[in-house]
């Protein structure tokens, strides 16, 4: 075993290695059913189940006006201190660059 432990820790060989580097960092998660999360990543596994801290959830809903039948797009936000997220709803994970 020539490679040091450090090298092993920082190597990015597969997609989930990038998520490992985001541990204890704030990330952006896009979920199914028009939901987005921003929060600090505290734990994850190979299914992309996660625990996030200081989470802000954004839900985008489209309603149809009863009179004009126009689409009304609404976003609702809420905050949760700690949230377990089931991986099967995750579409993508990213560092929250432009979304500060």
């Amino acid at each position: 075993m020539a490679s040091s432990n450090n090298e092993e820790e920082s190597a990015v060989k597969e997609p989930l290695d990038l998520i490992r580097l985001s541990l204890d960092e704030r990330i952006y998660v896009k979920l199914r059913s028009d939901r987005e999360l921003r929060g600090k990543l505290h734990a994850y596994d190979q299914h992309l189940n996660m625990i996030l801290g200081d989470v802000e959830e954004t839900i985008t809903t489209v309603e149809i006006d009863d009179e004009t039948y126009e689409e009304i797009v609404r976003t609702t936000k809420r905050n949760v201190q700690y949230l377990f997220v089931r991986g099967d709803g995750v579409i993508l994970v990213s560092p929250p660059l432009r979304t500060a």
Binding site: E8, L16, L23, H42, A43, Y82, F84, R86, D88
Partner: peptide, 29 residues
């Protein structure tokens, strides 16, 4: 049923972030 869960809101006193980080790194290896 586990497959129908979207989120679980966790009690703050039930979250030890250092412990979770360690467990996650171990699992990733």
């Amino acid at each position: 049923r586990g497959s129908v869960v979207r989120y679980v809101q966790l009690p703050p006193e039930g979250v030890d972030t250092d412990l979770l980080h360690d467990a996650t790194r171990r699992e990733a290896r």
